[in-house]
Computed example of a mutant assay.
Amino acid sequence: MRELIKESIIDLKKTDGFIYVTADGKKIDLHEAAARGIAVTPVNPKDEVIKKLEAAGLHLTDSKFLNDLNDLIAELSGKAASKSSGKRRSFSDAEKSKIIEEWKKVEAAGKKTKAAFAREIGVGYQTFINWLRG
């Protein structure tokens, strides 16, 4: 699956515009086809990539499938799915203290940056810095 995704990315990056396909389905350069008098059909490379991915079971044009896939990734990575209502979350002083205590442990272990820790707990970097100064 990983190889298919990598190939798809390469296919999309290496073409600018359409690719041209002969009657027997082989890709050919437009200038070469014209020089040799071969009839070609223009094909959008995105359509070809989508067909390959769908054949492998990745329906990336289906928004429900994408939502489910994003939810799965969020669950596997331990991050809550981003279904934010746009409201700010308030933290009590006790919660802030607990978070700062946790940061001190993480910092002592040297495992994460402040920015990564703030992202992980769902707090803006500057807010987290202000708590530390607090």
Score class of each variant (00 low, 15 high):
Glu7Leu: 06
Glu7Val: 00
Ser8Thr: 10
Ile9Asp: 00
Asp11Arg: 10
Leu12Thr: 03
Lys13Val: 09
Lys14Leu: 10
Gly17Arg: 03
Ile19Glu: 01
Asp24Gly: 03
Gly25Thr: 02
Lys26Trp: 03
Lys27Trp: 02
Lys27Ala: 09
Ile28Glu: 05
Asp29Leu: 09
His31Gly: 10
Glu32His: 07
Ala34Tyr: 11
Ile38Asp: 04
Ala39Lys: 13
Val40Ala: 05
Val40His: 05
Val43Cys: 11
Val43Thr: 08
Asn44Thr: 00
Asp47Lys: 12
Ile50Ser: 00
Ile50His: 02
Lys51His: 09
Lys51Gly: 00
Leu53Ser: 07
Leu53Thr: 11
Leu53Pro: 03
Leu53Asp: 07
Glu54Cys: 14
Glu54Asp: 14
Glu54Arg: 15
Ala55Trp: 04
Ala56Gly: 12
Ala56Glu: 13
Leu58Thr: 04
Leu58Met: 14
Leu58Lys: 07
Leu58Arg: 08
His59Trp: 09
Thr61Leu: 06
Asp62Arg: 08
Ser63Tyr: 07
Leu66Ser: 07
Leu66Glu: 10
Asp71Val: 04
Ala74Ser: 15
Glu75Pro: 01
Gly78Lys: 05
Ala81Trp: 06
Lys83Asp: 06
Lys87Thr: 07
Arg89Ser: 06
Ser90Phe: 08
Phe91Pro: 02
Phe91Ile: 06
Asp93Gly: 00
Ile99Arg: 02
Glu101Asn: 12
Glu101Asp: 13
Trp103Pro: 01
Lys104Pro: 00
Lys104Cys: 01
Lys105Val: 11
Val106Ser: 08
Ala108Ile: 09
Ala108Asp: 12
Ala109Phe: 08
Gly110Gln: 10
Lys111Ala: 15
Lys112His: 11
Lys112Asp: 13
Thr113Cys: 04
Thr113Pro: 03
Lys114Glu: 13
Ala116Arg: 04
Phe117Asn: 01
Arg119Val: 06
Glu120His: 15
Val123Ala: 07
Tyr125Ile: 02
Gln126Gly: 07
Thr127Gly: 11
